[in-house]
Design a protein around this nucleic acid. Structure first.
Lengths: 121, 121
DNA sequence: CGGTTTATCAACCGATGAGTTAAGTAAAGC
DNA sequence: GCTTTACTTAACTCATCGGTTGATAAACCG
């Protein structure tokens, strides 16, 4: 994605196969073949998905002989939850004082319309 | 993205510009020009971002003369939060009985290794 | 009316994504 | 030591993404 960690994570999650892999890993470690088994794509495709998940920090991979067990790394998911929670008051339809203030300020700006070094050429 | 709603939402969120637009909209409705102002890209680029956000259900657009005020639509964000919350017990390091059972089952499978109609050719 | 402001649509471009097949690496097993 | 098993890397295809410029639509303003 764009490079920043959160974009990397969201980008990794924007694929149902990868989300399914995470769901599977929530049941415990698994090898690449085990992870690939349910999907109608090549093992190489899964290998790529795993690399994406790894880059995003969503999984880590160990070594056990020729197997490469994958493990769920939940920290980025916590960050996603935290990020989304910021908006909780919006989906709960509740707005605290600051929000109301900001909304009122916003409204006045679109009515009164002046000040604020805007981009008038 | 792949078509399913959640992928659409995650895909929309996988861009810092679009997340910044959402953050701005959390302060209240805004027009396209207002949203574009902070960014070093063309208005058309922002218009495209808005279309992506709209397709994902993250914003709606009204009509006020020649202006098209954008509004934050928090429902998909709630779904994101809910989705991520599924993994809460993992980042809290706590596992309930079912999880332990699944993990044990998983471990036994990788040790004992038989039964389970797997993909042996 | 003509011009300005606000925003979208269309065509293009380079980069990236998700998939493929084919070849390469690495450890185990006989 | 050769084969098998597990997985990765490489090279390619094709679609989509994020950005651009240029043209267009629609509503207001004088």
């Amino acid at each position: 994605m764009t490079g920043d960690p959160l974009s990397e994570v969201f980008g990794a999650l924007a694929d149902p196969t990868r989300r399914a892999i995470l769901a599977r890993l929530a049941e415990g470690e698994a090898t690449v073949n085990e992870l690939a088994e349910p999907f109608p794509v090549s093992l190489q495709a899964i290998s790529k998905h795993l690399k994406v998940l790894e880059r995003a920090g969503l999984i880590t991979r160990g070594r056990d002989a020729q197997w490469r067990p994958c493990r769920l790394e939940p920290e980025p998911l916590r960050e996603v939850a935290t990020w989304a929670e910021q908006y909780r008051r919006y989906w709960e339809g509740r707005y605290d004082q600051l929000d109301e203030y900001l909304q009122r300020l916003q409204k006045e700006k679109s009515d009164g319309q002046q000040g604020e070094d805007s981009q008038r050429p």
